[in-house]
């Protein structure tokens, strides 16, 4: 190498190490004292967590059967359940140790007999409900937690996936996507392109309905000191 006489400044090493997945990072830290020290510094932690924000990954879990189909959503230091009748959301505030209820969006016009299914999820740290009718999927977000103000953030046509609608339910969502699962497949809806894609499907003729869950995650490091 003709430029063997030049060396990387620490800044370059830091930038490269900060782009490693966590497992590789921990392994690479053991290479030498310089790298260990660089990657143990507080400023490195900040850089790493900042960069990893841009690279959200997806964790998909497939199990044979469901043990618990009730979804609990944890936001704002409280646990949230959807009531069976879809009348309201039950809230347990963990810091005050008190129970209360949050009303669903009025415009949703649900309740028994409307034929709509309603699911409780999280969206960007906020409470969200997704309503699925035969042709539409409406996504609401609780913008103002204190006042109970819901906003309709997305209204998605289900025409493209018509045949699957009766069996699907949303499992996770983020700013760019919504994941839905049926008994044999996982679908992803991309908000920006307004397109659907099949992410995973069961190939063999399994008779057992499968249970899916999907979460977006990103690597974050903390110092234990």
């Amino acid at each position: 190498m003709e430029t063997n006489h030049t060396y990387f400044v620490d800044e370059i090493i830091l930038e490269i190490l900060a782009r490693l997945p966590i497992k590789s990072l921990i392994r690479t830290k053991c290479v030498c004292k310089l790298w260990y020290n660089l990657a143990s510094h507080k400023s490195f932690t900040q850089l790493y967590n900042h960069l990893s924000l841009k690279n959200a990954m997806l964790l998909l879990q497939v199990t044979d059967s469901s043990t618990d189909s009730t979804s609990i959503v944890f936001v704002n230091g409280s646990l949230h359940w959807m009531t069976q009748s879809f009348a309201y959301i039950l809230v347990l505030d963990l810091s005050l140790d008190s129970w209360r209820r949050i009303l669903l969006p009025e415009e949703m016009g649900c309740g028994n007999g409307s034929g709509n299914r309603v699911y409780l999820l999280e969206f960007d740290g906020k409470l969200s409900v997704i309503q699925i009718s035969s042709v539409w999927m409406n996504i609401w977000v609780l913008q103002d937690y204190g006042k109970g103000k819901w906003d309709l953030i997305d209204r998605v046509s289900l025409r493209c996936i018509r045949g699957m609608v009766p069996g699907i339910f949303p499992i996770s969502q983020g700013g760019d996507y919504v994941f839905l699962a049926g008994h044999k497949q996982v679908l992803v809806y991309q908000r920006k392109t307004r397109s659907w894609k099949e992410m995973y499907s069961v190939k063999n003729n399994s008779t057992m309905p499968l249970w899916f869950s999907a979460h977006s995650f990103r690597g974050t490091i903390f110092s234990c000191r």
Partner: peptide, 29 residues
């Protein structure tokens, strides 16, 4: 590696990002 040194000197952020990621991918394999 020569590119990294040049980019670092010339300060082309976009390309630096790309190359840092490439080297990181080499390390993680």
């Amino acid at each position: 590696f020569d590119l990294i040194l040049a980019m670092n000197y010339l300060n082309i952020k976009e390309l630096l990002d790309l190359i840092y990621q490439t080297v990181a991918d080499m390390i993680k394999g």
